[in-house]
Design a protein around this nucleic acid. Structure first.
Lengths: 356, 356
DNA sequence: CTGAAAGCGCTAACAT
DNA sequence: ATGTTAGCGCTTTCAG
């Protein structure tokens, strides 16, 4: 049987022949096993260089059962954005939104920084509906990656459960709503918002309103709860609460509505920097000065905070550290699959700039 | 030899045993080959369902030599951004910039729309320096993906050549600077800018300036060339030319400089929507009204154009169609590796909104 | 310390 | 139309 090889690439066998040793020895050299005679090792290394050998990942995976790559899965609902855009007609994917929010840039950066030195690769997968979630699960089950870092925003997302059921090693970007045997990291959202409220109150503000995130997300709910809690602690009540959608355009819409509801507000906590970026021009346009007339505090400390005018005072989430930790939790899990899923808490801090 | 199986998953063999047929038959059913008796087929399908069988991708790849996934590689230089941000200290990756530019969202959307119905998966890879480029090449050589869609911005990027040398099937997002045996798509940048200039001139503008992109990128150079050409065609000279960096913050900086150089400019062509988004507040702040005092035209027609105030008149690149085409060119290439690399041209159009 | 040999799970001739 | 069988390229016992 002389079937044409799928790719005419150099194999371990070829290297072994050139080096005059066995496949096993070459394999040991390639994988850095200690038990190889230095002399032989260098012969093999030369042969590898001479033949431009590159190990075949599929073959290796087949026998080792692992792939050396992990998936970064961003899971959202495929809901409509506030504004229609020609681009949205062509493809219903939410890629556009993901790629507009600097928050995700920080996540990816944190993951990359952690995996790059280890030679692990990242596969980015976006899912936003039933079909894509099923496809994802199928993909994962086929063993294309060793595990997943899951960024999931919505409370109803079935993915955490599905992943657990499918025994796919995974770590989540937030504590799952229902108990699931999966690791996660979480930031103290309430505490962070508390810092913001304290700062506003200390600055003499009393009529404090908020633009929330989409309230079907735990993050938005936590931030709102923290806002109310701390305000109450100061003996104050919210001047207004308007729901936004974590987008820039949505922030503008929400702020317009907020000014109708609470024209005398002297401070606004906006639950994400990106929304604040959209909200600030609305304030300016209404004739209000920031921070003189209205103080604004954001949340995230993403690059959007610096794109704001004036630069935004904001609650900083240590996103890079959190995503780096997710990677480490995942890799630990992969190294010892029997271990219990571990989790980690982070605290937020206040970054004071010019807007409050 | 009773080695522990790497993953205790169901194999073709198991299904065959349950169904009482041979592995080959199960394989045929799984792969939808026609030559299977309907009765047997349904027996096999039940066995598959009963055992929750999922094909092992590594094994399949090993024998077929293909993986069913492609890489979307975004390659840039790891240069500093205009503004420093805490996030930048933690990781020098350019993930932040990528995830801040809605342009890339359109690219990803276009790719996804094309591959999803075919069941092909996308792996997103970001490279921004020598090391990451080498790692990338290694990854690709290991056969993890079947081919690559390459988004490369800089003229000096060695990746196109490297990919060609490594025989990695690839399609580029622009015509390579030096001739490389690789497929590409290209938009008529000059023609597009010409539309913008014509529109401004038709609107009575005569003192027209521009904020360019980073001039080490062919795209920025083409747009500038188109700008000069068409302006000359109208008997005009540029009121000013200031180099930007395709970021929002960079757009603001450039616009400030431009107003110093050409305070009397009555129109500005900004070479990307994202830069325009940064430039507009600078104009407002200087007391100029848009479009009454200064008309502004952008480039891309990304979601940033709608985030602008007023909504931005801009040159539309058919980014989704272009990236979809890249995918198709790549898949065609994979289907027939012997075929010549094909390419495609697209034309730009003017989307008139309120800023000019 | 090195080599021989047995598979990992799958596909695709080839034979029936 | 179905079964038999030979590998794909690699890692890893097990002998020596």
């Amino acid at each position: 049987m002389t079937r044409k090889p799928p790719s005419a690439s150099v194999t371990l066998e070829d290297v072994a022949r050139v080096a005059g040793v066995s496949r096993a020895t070459v394999s040991r050299v390639v994988n850095g096993r200690a038990t190889v005679d230095p002399a032989l090792r260098s012969v093999v290394e030369q042969a590898i260089a001479a033949t431009a050998y590159v190990p075949n990942r599929a073959a290796r995976s087949l026998v080792t059962g692992s792939t050396g790559s992990i998936a970064l899965v961003v899971s959202e609902e495929g809901r409509q954005t506030a504004q229609r855009h020609p681009a949205d007609e062509t493809h219903p994917s939410f890629a556009g939104r993901i790629f507009t929010d600097p928050f995700f840039g920080r996540v990816v950066g944190g993951v990359m920084g952690e995996i790059r030195p280890r030679g692990v690769q990242m596969v980015l997968l976006l899912v936003d509906d039933e079909q894509s979630r099923r496809q994802l699960l199928n993909y994962l089950r086929q063993g294309h990656v060793d595990g997943v870092v899951l960024i999931s925003t919505h409370a109803e997302d079935p993915l955490p459960e599905w992943l657990a059921d499918a025994r796919v090693p995974a770590v989540m970007s937030a504590q799952p709503v229902r108990p699931v045997p999966i690791g996660w990291v979480e930031v103290d959202q309430r505490g962070g918002v508390g810092l913001a409220v304290d700062h506003l109150v200390a600055g003499g503000r009393r009529r404090i309103a908020t633009v929330t995130g989409p309230l079907d997300t735990p993050a938005a709910r936590e931030r709102l709860a923290g806002f109310r809690e701390r305000l109450a602690g100061h003996g104050l009540a919210p001047a207004a609460e308007v729901e936004g959608d974590f987008t820039q355009a949505g922030g503008a819409v929400a702020m317009r509505r907020l000014l109708e509801l609470a024209p005398k507000a002297d401070a606004v906590f906006v639950a994400s920097d990106l929304m604040a970026l959209g909200a600030l021009p609305v304030l300016h346009r209404s004739g209000r000065r920031v921070p003189a007339d209205v103080a604004v505090v954001g949340f995230d400390d993403s690059s959007a905070a610096l794109a704001c005018d004036p630069p935004l005072t904001t609650v900083r989430q240590p996103v890079e550290e959190m995503s780096a930790r997710m990677v480490r939790l995942l890799l630990d899990r992969l190294a010892d699959p029997a271990a219990e899923p571990l989790s980690a808490w982070f605290s937020a801090s206040l970054v004071v700039r010019d807007s409050a």
